[in-house]
């Protein structure tokens, strides 16, 4: 399991992509004088990032959780996506090694930042860690992180990753 994953397409999503590809084909035809248009493949994926470095979070990589300024215990991964619109909603869930939910966020509105490369980024997604006993700072536990983004057209990208939850003084 890597830091990114691609999603199986629903019929609706396939139709949307087909429409997008049609547009690409038409534009390509105009650009090349109706020569060989060369259909560009739409890449759609979501990569979970380390919030500080903005580098992909490695499998079993450390994911800090701790109190935010106004309390509560939070994990705050960042993410980068391709092939979707910047406005949508984010869902995130963290489960422990036994599959028990430790925390989740559902339907969090998001307006992703457009990067120079054309990709989109969320600098952080706050996932409240509710169901975990207070652990000493620095203690670690295996877990699995799942994040999904659904854009305003209904296109969905998601990724899941084994992580190491690390209790910290701040997320």
């Amino acid at each position: 399991m890597g830091g990114s994953g691609r999603t199986a397409l629903s019929r609706r999503e396939s139709l949307v992509i087909a429409a997008s590809l049609s547009t690409v084909v038409l534009l390509g035809a105009f650009a090349t004088g109706c020569g060989s248009p060369g259909v560009a493949e739409v890449e759609r994926d979501l990569t979970i990032l380390n919030r500080v470095s903005l580098e992909p979070l490695a499998p079993d990589g450390d994911l800090r959780y701790g109190p935010s300024f106004q309390g509560g215990s939070w994990a705050m991964p960042a993410l980068r996506v391709r092939g979707v619109e910047p406005i949508g909603v984010l869902n995130g869930e963290i489960v422990d090694g036994a599959g028990k939910a430790l925390g989740s966020v559902s339907g969090s509105p998001a307006h992703l930042i457009e990067e120079a490369s054309g990709t989109l980024r969320a600098d952080w997604l706050g996932i409240p860690i509710a169901d975990i006993a207070a652990e000493p700072i620095g203690s670690k536990a295996p877990a699995r992180l799942h994040i999904a983004f659904v854009d305003e057209t209904g296109l969905r990208v998601e990724s899941q990753l084994p992580v190491t939850l690390v209790s910290a003084e701040s997320p």
Binding site: V89, G107, V150, G154
Partner: peptide
């Protein structure tokens, strides 16, 4: 369901 609420809001 929450995702659809979000989409509805956007619509």
């Amino acid at each position: 369901a929450s995702e659809w609420r979000g989409r509805l809001a956007m619509a």
